[in-house]
Computed example of a mutant assay.
Amino acid sequence: MELQRRTGLEVRRLPGLQPYAGTWELQRELVLKRRRDEIPDTLLLLEHPPVYTLGRSARDASNLGAGEEYLRSLGAEVFWIDRGGDVTFHGPGQLVGYPIIRLKYREAHRYLRDLEEVVIRTVGEFGLEGRRHPDYTGVWIEDRKIAAIGVKFSSGWVTSHGFALNVNTDLRWFERVTPCGIREYGVTSLERELGRRVDLEGVERGVVRHFRAVFGVD
C-alpha cells in the first residue's frame, strides 16, 4: 500500500483493483479509529473491479435494469449499502475517493458541496467546466454527469463513502442501469470529453491537492 502523509491528512492509494467488500469493511474500521482519534483524517483513493452499489434512496431494484442476476452474469458484483443515494457503478478507470474525516462543521449540505468543489477544480485543470446541478448531487459537464457522490455520516460527524470520478471508465456499464435514479441525463468521463486516455495518477494528484485546499488541511 502506497502511503503519503500530509499535515492533517493521510492519503492512502490502494493498489490495483480493490474488491468492494474489503474496502467497505476497511471504511468501517477506519471510521471507528477516527472517532476514537486513533488516526488522522484519511482519504482513500482507489479503483474497483466492476460493481454496482445501491444506497439508502434505492427502496427497490427498479433502477437495476434487467436485475441483479443479469448484472452478475456480466461479471459485476451488486451491493446494497449504507450511503446516501441510489444505484451507481464503480469500475476500472474510475477514481474513487473515500474520505474518513471528522467534520469541523456540522453541515451535511456544505460537505456535499465541498466534495463537488474538489471535483470541479480537478476537472478544471483539464480545461473542462464542471458544474453543480440544481436538483442532483454530483458534478456535471453541461448535462452529463462526470462524478457521483454518496456519503454517510457516523456519530461524531465522521464521514465515509464519498465520490467517484469517471476518468477512463467504460461507460457502457452505466447503460445497464439508471444511474443515481436519473433517467433524463447521461454520464460522461474525462476520456470521452477530451477524446483521449487520461493519466489517472495525474488526476489523483489534482484531487489530493484540491481536497487539501477545499478542506483546509494545510
Score class of each variant (00 low, 15 high):
Phe153Trp: 06
Leu128Trp: 05
Thr137Gly: 13
Gly138Cys: 00
Gly130His: 03
Ile141Phe: 03
Ser155Arg: 14
Tyr136Gly: 09
Arg131Cys: 12
Ser154Met: 00
Ala147Lys: 02
His133Ile: 03
Thr159Gly: 12
Asp143Val: 07
Glu129Asp: 08
Thr137Trp: 04
Ala148Gln: 05
Lys145Val: 06
Tyr136Asn: 08
Glu129Pro: 05
Lys152Cys: 10
Trp140Lys: 08
Glu125Tyr: 06
Asp143Asn: 15
Thr137Tyr: 03
Arg132Met: 11
Trp140Met: 05
Gly138Arg: 02
Pro134Thr: 11
Gly156Ala: 10
Glu142Gln: 15
Thr159Asp: 12
Glu142Asn: 15
Thr137Cys: 09
Arg132Gly: 10
Gly130Glu: 03
Phe126Gln: 05
Phe126His: 11
Pro134Phe: 10
Pro134Asp: 11
Glu129Ala: 14
Gly127Ile: 14
Thr137Lys: 05
Trp140Gly: 03
Gly138Tyr: 00
Glu125Ala: 13
Arg144Asp: 02
His133Arg: 12
Val151Ser: 04
Lys145Pro: 09
Trp140Val: 04
Ser154Cys: 10
Phe153Arg: 12
Glu142Phe: 10
Gly150Lys: 05
Val158His: 04
Val158Cys: 07
Ile146Lys: 06
Arg131Lys: 14
Lys152Gln: 14
Lys152Val: 07
Asp135His: 12
Glu129Trp: 00
Ile141Val: 14
Phe153Ser: 06
Val151Phe: 06
Ile146Ser: 09
Trp157Ala: 14
Gly150Arg: 04
Leu128Asn: 05
Gly130Trp: 00
Trp157Tyr: 15
Asp135Phe: 13
Ser155Asn: 12
Phe153Pro: 02
Gly150Glu: 00
Ile149Asp: 03
Thr159Ile: 11
Ala148Thr: 06
Arg132Cys: 05
Gly130Val: 01
Gly156Ser: 14
Lys152Trp: 07
Gly127Tyr: 14
Glu129Gly: 12
Gly127Ser: 15
Ser154Asp: 13
Gly156Trp: 09
Val158Lys: 01
Ile141Asn: 01
Lys145Ile: 13
Ala147Phe: 04
Trp140Phe: 03
Gly130Lys: 01
Pro134Glu: 15
Ile149Tyr: 04
Ala147Gly: 06
Ala148Asp: 02
Ile149Phe: 04
Ala147Arg: 00
Trp140Pro: 01
Ala147Asn: 13
Ser155Met: 07
Glu142Arg: 15
Phe153His: 11
Ile149Lys: 04
Thr159Trp: 05
Lys152Tyr: 07
Arg144Met: 07
Arg131His: 09
Asp135Glu: 15
Phe126Asp: 07
Ile149Cys: 00
Gly156Glu: 12
Lys145Asp: 06
Asp143Gln: 15
Ala147Ile: 04
Trp157Arg: 08
Ile146Arg: 08
Pro134Ser: 14
His133Tyr: 08
Gly156His: 15
Asp135Lys: 15
Arg144Gln: 12
Lys152Asn: 11
Ser154Phe: 10
Ala148Phe: 08
Ile141Glu: 00
Lys152His: 13
Tyr136Thr: 07
Thr159Glu: 10
Ala148Arg: 00
Ala147His: 04
Arg131Phe: 03
Val139Asp: 06
Ser154Glu: 11
Arg144Leu: 12
Pro134Ala: 10
Trp157Glu: 09
Val139Phe: 05
Trp157Met: 11
Lys145Trp: 10
Arg131Asn: 11
Tyr136Lys: 09
Arg132Ser: 10
Pro134Asn: 13
